[in-house]
Simulated scan of single mutants.
Amino acid sequence: MSSNKNALIRYKTIDSCLRNRAKEYTLEDLIDVCSDALFEFEGKESFLSKRTIQLDIQNMRSEKLGYNAPIEVYDRKFYRYSDDTFSIKNIPVTEKDVQIINESIQLLKQFKDFSLFKQMSGVIQRLEDSVISGKNQKSIIHLDKNENLKGLEFIDVLYEAILKKKVLNVSYKSFKAREINQMQIHPQLLKEFNNRWFVICWHKTRIYNLALDRIEEIADDLAETYIDKKVDGDTYFNEVIGATVSERNRPTNVIFFVEKNNAPYVKTKPFHHSQEVLEENENGTLFKIKVQLNFELERMILGFGDLITVMQPRKLRMRIEQTLKNAVKNYRD
């Protein structure tokens, strides 16, 4: 459970205790009650120090969370609210809160027709109906999305399989294959890149990256035991651009030059988190990133056309050069 959720459970538990005039609560009592509440939610013991509960009380008293709780200590050891009617559950929603909710509603509405988020449509509608100032408000943020992409109908099935650790039988046909390939997969992670979705899965002896738009059919395989490879997205994709990861290839230094008028775009929107500036002059900027060489990297570089020049490694430079030469041939009579 996240630390934020833990804290919220403690705040609600403390609030319930301080509103109870039939019992007196010491700091030790609050620790015990909060520990029991966390055990009920998590199913495991949680060690809470005096310092933790003291900080919770301090936060509830302050404006930090918007509670301003009138917590007092009497007889030098018991805690209660000085106002019998107070509860953190009764804190009114401010105008700023309403504005934030409105903005969030408009953002969520952009996903309401997307398969994975369809179950949220009713929640979004109830939120919009409850927030009067949100009526007829247009969305200020627009996200790039395409609900008509082939394969999106499989997201729900794959999401549930990952969540419930289920093995799947998949009919898969890559763009290069002549026939459909039957695969037994252990789905680990869903990945979106450039408006295309992929499932990262374990198949036989290694991890595969399957594009959802090339999946033909999916069925549960209840006879097989799920293999959890504990794939962490941040770690797994740390050394690549896009969704293609190779277990054999190591990251390499990619050095490229961008002409001066377009260098600011690359500075403000780096190709990769490892990007750094090596040199700048009146003609442009020399950048370096450390990534695996893959298809997505090449497509990103080619998207800049003649505004970018790959300096190293030589293998990548030659591939980009040959691709550009082939492109020129397409425009010759």
Rank of each mutant, 00 (worst) to 15 (best):
84 D>S: 12
77 K>W: 05
81 Y>F: 11
56 D>L: 09
67 Y>A: 03
60 M>I: 02
83 D>H: 08
74 Y>R: 07
76 R>K: 15
68 N>P: 05
78 F>A: 06
65 L>N: 12
69 A>W: 00
69 A>D: 00
51 R>M: 11
78 F>T: 04
73 V>G: 01
73 V>Y: 03
69 A>V: 01
63 E>D: 15
67 Y>C: 03
60 M>A: 02
47 F>Q: 13
85 T>P: 01
86 F>D: 10
80 R>Y: 01
61 R>P: 00
80 R>E: 13
63 E>T: 04
67 Y>S: 03
85 T>W: 06
65 L>V: 06
68 N>S: 13
79 Y>R: 07
72 E>D: 10
59 N>F: 13
76 R>D: 15
56 D>C: 06
54 Q>E: 15
81 Y>K: 09
68 N>K: 14
69 A>H: 00
82 S>C: 06
67 Y>H: 03
49 S>M: 05
58 Q>P: 03
80 R>L: 04
48 L>A: 11
66 G>R: 09
52 T>I: 13
77 K>G: 09
60 M>Q: 01
61 R>S: 04
70 P>V: 01
69 A>F: 00
78 F>K: 03
73 V>E: 04
53 I>R: 07
48 L>W: 07
51 R>S: 15
60 M>N: 02
58 Q>E: 14
58 Q>R: 11
66 G>K: 09
65 L>F: 15
77 K>I: 12
56 D>V: 10
75 D>N: 13
86 F>V: 04
61 R>I: 02
70 P>T: 02
71 I>Q: 04
71 I>W: 06
48 L>E: 10
58 Q>Y: 14
65 L>E: 07
83 D>C: 08
55 L>I: 14
80 R>F: 01
49 S>W: 04
59 N>Q: 07
62 S>D: 00
77 K>R: 14
82 S>V: 09
48 L>D: 12
84 D>F: 07
48 L>S: 04
50 K>Q: 08
47 F>V: 15
71 I>M: 08
80 R>Q: 11
53 I>W: 10
53 I>E: 03
60 M>L: 05
60 M>P: 05
70 P>E: 02
68 N>M: 11
81 Y>L: 04
85 T>M: 06
83 D>M: 05
84 D>N: 08
61 R>D: 00
50 K>F: 10
84 D>Q: 11
62 S>C: 01
82 S>W: 01
57 I>F: 00
81 Y>G: 07
61 R>V: 00
55 L>K: 15
58 Q>I: 10
84 D>Y: 10
71 I>T: 08
55 L>Q: 15
71 I>F: 08
79 Y>C: 08
73 V>A: 03
47 F>N: 15
72 E>S: 10
67 Y>W: 08
67 Y>D: 02
47 F>I: 15
82 S>N: 12
70 P>W: 03
81 Y>H: 06
74 Y>E: 07
80 R>D: 05
73 V>W: 06
80 R>G: 03
82 S>F: 06
73 V>Q: 09
52 T>K: 12
59 N>M: 10
